[in-house]
Simulated assay, not measured.
Amino acid sequence: MSSDINFERRPRVMGILNMTPDSFSDGGRFNQAQVAVERVRQMIQEGADIIDIGGESTRPGAPAISEEEELARVIPVIEAIRHDSAIPISVDTSKPAVMHAAVAAGASLINDVRALQEPGALDMAAQLGVPICLMHMQGQPRTMQANPHYDDVVEEVLAFLQQRIELCQAAGIAPARLIIDPGFGFGKTVQHNLALFRYLPRFVKTGYPVLVGVSRKSMIGKLLGERPVDERLAGSLALATLAGWLGAAIVRVHDVRESVDALTLCRAVRHA
């Protein structure tokens, strides 16, 4: 991870920037380069430590897009942000060509919901030399919420991530470059998500930084009586605070200022 990101001070806040017309929360709001740069400036002012840029929606039921379309969505924006700011940029992609172009444009972290399982992704990540976040997902976005099933969701997700870690190391990726993400909402029911959250310390004990991304997700809406996306702030902050308390190193959020405040107070109490 970039040397200016210190996991000791508090969990790092990763601000979400979706360059997509169909993401579940803010699709289409920031998909012009100048608008995106202004949004990043705002997130930096609010305390974001990392900006996560994605060009392909991974919401349940989302269609796949071509490599060319994803490149066209994200690369000009990464270049514009890098010209404007030195903030670390994460690229949310599974495509090797997008990883390569994004790092060349100024990204310093690969955030892959498929944990480098796409053809060529593992070799590309090894070549690029930047940190990688490996996420667990059961199935694919188009079908992952159809009927997710586990005998033991915590053990199975841990086993998957450990397997991917071993394959990364065999490919020459140093352990210090790896981050893990249980994949809340990616092929999981509400009960699966709650179990993973309850046992988040199991993931922390692996020694790898843990990323938690639950901001505005459907589990919050369902647990609060079918609350719509724009009314999930309090639930998102509650889970962000819990994630920080339980040892998450990075919390991926839409609402940066509020999340920074919540995590700062969480750390103040923990270290009082």
Rank of each mutant, 00 (worst) to 15 (best):
T206M: 15
P60F: 03
E226W: 04
L200I: 06
Q138E: 10
P228L: 01
P60K: 12
E156S: 08
G247N: 12
G247A: 13
R114F: 12
R257L: 13
E166Q: 15
N18K: 06
L109F: 03
R198D: 11
A195G: 02
E79V: 05
A62I: 00
A64K: 02
I180H: 03
P11T: 07
A170L: 13
A80P: 09
P148W: 01
M43I: 07
K188M: 05
N193R: 12
Q127I: 03
Q191P: 03
D84K: 04
T20C: 05
G244D: 07
A105K: 02
A64F: 00
E68N: 03
F197E: 06
A105W: 03
G28P: 08
H83K: 15
V269H: 02
E258A: 14
A249E: 11
M99V: 00
P119L: 07
S25W: 02
P175I: 00
R12S: 15
Q34K: 13
P96V: 10
L233Y: 09
V260W: 12
Y208S: 01
I173E: 11
V190A: 09
G183V: 07
L128K: 01
S57L: 00
G213P: 10
R227P: 05
M14G: 05
H83V: 05
R267A: 02
G106C: 13
A234V: 10
Q140W: 03
S3M: 13
R252L: 02
M137I: 15
M124V: 03
Y208E: 06
G183D: 11
A243H: 08
A97Q: 05
I51T: 07
A268E: 14
Q117A: 06
V98H: 02
G213Y: 03
E46N: 12
L246I: 06
S90D: 09
L242K: 05
H149V: 14
V13G: 00
C266Y: 09
D92W: 01
P131R: 01
N6R: 06
E166H: 12
E231T: 03
E38M: 09
E56V: 01
D84V: 04
K217L: 08
K217A: 10
G187D: 04
P76T: 03
V157M: 07
A101G: 01
D84S: 15
V77P: 01
K217C: 06
P201L: 06
C266M: 14
V212P: 08
I78V: 01
P11E: 13
Q162S: 08
V190C: 12
C266A: 14
P182R: 07
N111K: 06
D49G: 13
F197N: 06
M135I: 15
N111S: 03
S218V: 00
G120C: 12
M43S: 04
S57Y: 00
R41E: 15
E155A: 15
N193K: 09
K95Y: 02
S215G: 09
Q140V: 15
E79C: 04
V13L: 09
K217M: 08
L194S: 07
A234R: 07
F24I: 02
P119G: 11
Y208T: 00
A33N: 05
H192Q: 04
Q32M: 08
F203Y: 08
E38D: 13
T143Y: 07
P182S: 10
G244L: 08
P201Q: 14
S90V: 10
M135Y: 08
T189K: 04
K217P: 10
L233A: 03
I132H: 05
G120T: 08
G213A: 13
G244I: 06
